[in-house]
Simulated assay, not measured.
Amino acid sequence: MAPRVKICGLSKPAHVEAVSRSGAAYAGFVFFPKSPRNVTIAQARELALMVPLGVAKVALVVNATDAELDAITAQVPLDMLQLHGKETPERVAEIRARYGLPVMKALGVAEPSDLEAIPAYEAVADQILVDAKAPKGAALPGGNGLSFDWTLIAGRKWSKPWMLAGGLTPENVALAIARTGANQLDVSSGVESAPGVKEASLIKDFVAAAGAA
């Protein structure tokens, strides 16, 4: 089966159209004001309504409060919440119970010890996103265009579905799959010509390269 691809950080109708044509499995919307990919709830609703059936709509949030999540989930038709902050396993479980939506928890990896947190989150989340750890002092928890040492997770098996993120591009995604065995991939900056500016040709090339791998 071809790997499932998530294109994250969509902020314009043209981005959604490109994702729809590409065969990607997930469309991600970022609710984080510091990000160049940030969208308002109104923007996200408009874009989410354009996403075709069969493509999962994912809201990426960072340490969001219940009030923020209430507003997002009330107005944007979603299939999943992606938690990309410092949410504890208890908070993940709380959000999953409160909103009745599948939850993906992002965890940053830079060294072997970073993998030790995964089991606790695996127990409460529906999916795990294994991402490159943001550099110290970075404004963004993800979407920095950085990868990590993929050999750290080579041959790893987890009980929940997981997704690989961090510095993926059309050029290196086949190698990433070969090194890690990932069958789900998340890309944002790797299909952009500038921060927040998605390119339809790069989206198409990324999904095709992942599928060919």
Rank of each mutant, 00 (worst) to 15 (best):
A42R: 14
A182G: 11
A182D: 03
G100R: 10
K6C: 07
A208S: 11
Y121Q: 04
P52E: 09
A213W: 05
E116F: 03
E87N: 06
G100H: 03
A67G: 06
V30M: 06
A64F: 02
K57P: 01
A74W: 06
L107E: 02
G108H: 08
G145N: 10
A67L: 05
A165Q: 08
G23K: 11
A212L: 02
S193M: 07
V5C: 13
P141C: 02
P161F: 05
A194F: 05
E111H: 14
A48H: 00
P161Q: 07
L49P: 03
E116N: 07
A2V: 11
R4K: 14
I72E: 11
A132H: 07
F32Q: 01
V62M: 10
Y26D: 10
H15F: 07
R179A: 15
V62T: 06
R21F: 13
P112F: 00
G23W: 08
E87T: 06
Q82C: 10
D205Q: 13
L107R: 00
G142L: 09
T65H: 06
G167Y: 09
E171A: 15
V109G: 06
L168C: 03
V207H: 08
S188A: 14
S189I: 12
L152G: 10
Q127W: 14
K157Y: 00
A213M: 09
P36S: 09
R4N: 04
I41E: 01
V62G: 04
A59G: 01
Q82A: 05
H15C: 09
L47E: 02
Q127E: 14
Q43D: 13
R21P: 11
K86G: 06
V62N: 00
